[in-house]
Amino acid sequence: MREEKGIFVFLEYTRGKIEKVSLELIAKACELQKICNEPVYGVAIGEESKEIESQLCSLPIEKVWWYIQEGACLSELWEEAMVECIEKISPSILLLGGTPIGSGFASRIAVAMKTGVTADCTMLEFDENRNLVQTRPAFGGNIMASILTERTRPQIATVRPGIFPALTDSSGKTVVEKKTLGQKNKSPQLLAREEKEEKGGITDQEILVVAGRGVKKKEDLELLRELAHLLGGELASSRALVEKGWMSQKAQIGVSGNVVKPEVIITFGVSGTIQFMTGMKNAKKIIAVNIDKTAPILSVAHLPIVGDLYTIVPNLITLLKKE
């Protein structure tokens, strides 16, 4: 058997721009390349576009295969294109973004190649045998697990956007080889493709202020909403207030609501049940205000404050207005 060499990166793009996560993966692949000294390749699939072509050409990597495909994004079809490339090059590593598209076909490739896939890695490094150590949170984030794919290749890993630093080098001169990817005759019919314009839902926010049952009256929510807007974010809530009919379900955080990953989340009067915390535990900075020092939310917060939201919030608004 031929020895596998090379790091493959799946390059995802929409609206004339390569996805941030794909560029983060290129940066990571280049970093790994410094250790293993294997070439880095990209595979892109989608519509023909001048903007994309120039971005692909300036990547600091060896080569890009670009499958031109009009029409629907189909896991089955895209997997077959990737497998075609993989069989030609026999890479040792394949990295994909843990996006709805990337995670929709990463494991199809794994099955085709009879190899493993490790989802949502937060660290990628080599061990002493040059195996890729794929570290990810396991079991709801309470433990980290380092995973090896020792016997099979490629070692496939997906990574969520924003985990690795961005690519800074766009001075490369990559060879781009275009190929066409035809539909299969039994392909489903594409009825519509609607670009998502509406931002403003709580999952798109960098900053979220969250109201819990500690808020006593519906009117008091206005105070928290004002605070959210002053900070440039939106108001969200626990399910307790949705059940009261004070907040819409669209604004609910938690297992039966939305999973959010903002830069900052500030909770007021939320106890921190598991159903709630599952929806927000990956926020970068968690600030929690709760009157009860035993509230579980305080033990996950980066800034836990035991205090009454009614004394703190008005003062915070005053301070922000002065800034």
């Binding site: 929409t14 996006t99 598209i101 493709r193 609607e194 670009e195």
Partner: peptide, 8 residues
């Protein structure tokens, strides 16, 4: 699909 909705 993240950036867009696909109807099939």
């Amino acid at each position: 699909l993240g950036e867009f909705i696909q109807v099939l």
